[in-house]
Amino acid sequence: MLSSLTIAAAILLTTIGAQAQAEAKGDYADVNGMRVYYEVSGEGAPIVVLHGAYMNIPAMGGIIPALAKTHTVYALEFQGHGRTEDIDRPVTYPNLASDVAAFMDDVGLEKADIFGYSMGAAAALRLAIDHPERVDHLITASVSYDMSGSQPAFLAMIPTMVPEMFVGTPMEDAWKALAPNPDGFRPFVERMIALEHEPMAWGEDVKKLKMPVLIIGGDSDMMTLEHLVSMYRLLGGGEPGDMGKPLSASRLAILPATSHTAVIDQVDLLMGFMEPFLNGETPKGMFDQ
């Protein structure tokens, strides 16, 4: 799901992308006919970080250096984003998931934890569906598994989206600052708008997932709260604790007073959810031994 409900927010995210991540080593991987830019930072168990639509690695803000304190972080830039070239191929979630799998092959990652935000979360979810053997723990922030779970206002906006909402704005200038082909913004935007019209109804696939999944969303996000809860229940969550049965391996975290574009910058709160999940730690109830 894209972060373009408010263009002003998207412009802000892209502009932040001009900044450099500290202590990260950048390189390119050969992925499905593209040279995909990525950065590696930190030490520890590997985690792949996937950014949102119209974003890039630095636009993910402080979450990457925070994760790098305890993990080896592999952050990549998707087709047409940041320093990765665009190619004449639709941007679809299966294509993005295939790119992540091919990227992992290129850098020698057989399996890793995966964290995705917004569009990156949908790509991460599709990766878990299509290539479950590549995913250890899955963290999705601000994602739908079915377009019917999107907020009605967002669904109503999709048919109105046209390239002119982006072309000729400061967002294009920021995109050109990193793009290998600065003249390719319009076809890139056309591909991104087309992504909004891609069908998404993955409920039966989500239900079959076996790896632990942490679902993160804002209480005023682009998908309804009911949809986030339904995803959690598809994964076996939501049953009562303290009644003799183990808790689900999957988890649900809702950030208060949080819109879609405000999710990714709440680093301390996110890490408070993510690190215990990745370490398999759970709060102890009064009946736990």
Score class of each variant (00 low, 15 high):
V162F: 03
M211F: 01
P212G: 02
M222N: 12
P182V: 04
A153F: 13
K245Q: 12
G203C: 00
P240E: 15
H227R: 07
M157V: 06
L255K: 01
G203Q: 08
M171N: 03
K210M: 13
E226G: 15
G241P: 03
D173L: 12
K176H: 07
F185I: 01
K210A: 14
W175D: 00
K208F: 11
A194R: 14
V206I: 14
T160Q: 14
L225N: 15
M222F: 13
L235T: 06
R186S: 03
I193M: 09
S220Q: 12
M222Q: 09
R251N: 06
L225G: 12
G244I: 09
V167P: 00
P170E: 08
A177P: 05
T169V: 07
M192K: 08
V213D: 04
T224S: 11
E204K: 14
M243K: 13
P182A: 01
G217F: 06
P170K: 08
V229L: 14
S250Y: 03
A156V: 05
M223D: 12
K210F: 07
M165Q: 05
V167M: 06
E239Y: 12
D205I: 01
T169R: 04
F154R: 13
E172N: 08
N181P: 01
R191L: 14
L255W: 00
A249K: 10
G237W: 02
L225D: 13
G184N: 13
R233F: 07
L235C: 06
H227K: 06
G244R: 06
R233V: 13
T169P: 06
R191P: 00
E196K: 13
